[in-house]
Nucleic acid binder design. Structure first.
Lengths: 198, 198
DNA sequence: ACCTGGACTGACTGACCAGTCAATCAGTAT
DNA sequence: ATACTGATTGACTGGTCAGTCAGTCCAGGT
């Protein structure tokens, strides 16, 4: 369990699971599909993980903790509010850019299952909202943002828009160009901060 | 199949399915749960529906068609753009208000899971975006909305925000007050049209 | 009275699959 | 060499569940 070689096998299984979950879905795939994809015996999966669900949990928590750290990091900076939001939007968009399969699994499989699975996930998801909400709240205090809109609500709008964009990409199945990634980051911030009014 | 009594039984099964899907999830529940909830023999479910999935499809299509009609109706009116968006937001929020279980099923099991199912659903979902997009586009043409933001993108933001709000309610499991329903409608429009800038 | 066809029943089947476990293998310490 | 430890294997088990089907019930027609 603790030798480098063993940890590497664990990773191989996790990476294979990402590919399998992304292409077949968590409920539809078999554990043997993961083992096959990883080039590993069926039983070895259970040597490293107590259950199929734990594999999904692990993938989600691993990635989400990185995101929470990125949000916390952004909160600490002295950037203007708009730039803070841009940094977070960038991080999430780039996460998709770097590993679309993993983001697909997290968005499609965890969000959907969040009501059935343990409350841990809902809490984690909430923590992201709260971080964004605090950024908006502070911007309202220093006068950068108007106070008519509830900060928590704004955080929902911001995160909801990003998730919607990723969902769109996921379901379209089309590759996204480098320019489009960058353009969307700008559009997200412009939409949330500037609104539609002419 | 065509007598009034028979159609009513079909409805009883559909309504029971909404409750069961909402509380247990589509993948987790058994067909026997639906039959029990409907107070009907197991086999009768298969008399009216060829498969478990068809029941979910039926529920989704029934409701989504009503929503598409509502969007089309709004498009035709002479209301100012802001009011058109408000009408659509109202319709969706009120759909949740009237039958939260059904909206939960549609959002959690279909909208957010559209990749695993047939392409029909993706098309239907897109049609909603397109309708909203056309409203934004026209508002940009007559100068009510600025043209810096892509209309399709704005439609995504608008729909994404609404879905996010409903998702929040769904996962919280808490009842929502009449005031809150109304307040949210205003906040949605204010957020999308006015933005956060002070 | 009998016939017909749709509504309705629920026991049963066949397939599927998560998770187990007894056995084998490979590295390393003694 | 020997013994120990953890990695690795894959056949097997037990349970679950979607969908089937052989048959009953009933209403309305003849």
């Amino acid at each position: 369990m603790s030798t480098p070689a063993a940890l590497e096998k664990r990773r191989v299984i996790l990476d294979a699971a990402v590919r399998v979950f992304a292409s077949q879905g968590f409920h539809t795939c078999r554990v043997s599909d993961i083992a096959d994809e990883a080039g590993v015996a069926y039983g070895l999966v259970y040597h490293y993980f107590p259950s199929k669900e734990t594999i999904l949990d692990t993938l989600f928590l691993e990635r989400w903790d990185v995101m929470l750290a990125a949000i916390a990091e952004t909160e600490k900076t002295e950037l203007p509010p708009r730039e803070k939001l841009r940094a977070i939007a960038s991080f999430i968009v780039d996460s998709y850019r770097h590993d679309p399969d993993l983001m697909k699994v997290i968005i499609v499989e965890v969000t959907r299952a969040a009501n059935t699975f343990g409350r841990t996930h809902v809490d984690k998801i909430m923590q992201a909202y709260e971080g964004i909400g605090r950024i908006v709240e502070q911007a309202q205090k220093d006068g950068s943002f108007r106070t008519e809109i509830d900060a928590t609500f704004a955080a929902q709008a911001f995160y909801g828009l990003i998730e919607q964009v990723l969902t769109q990409w996921i379901f379209s199945g089309l590759p996204v160009s480098a320019e489009e990634f960058e353009h969307v980051k700008t559009e997200i911030v412009e939409m949330i901060c500037g609104g539609l009014d002419g």
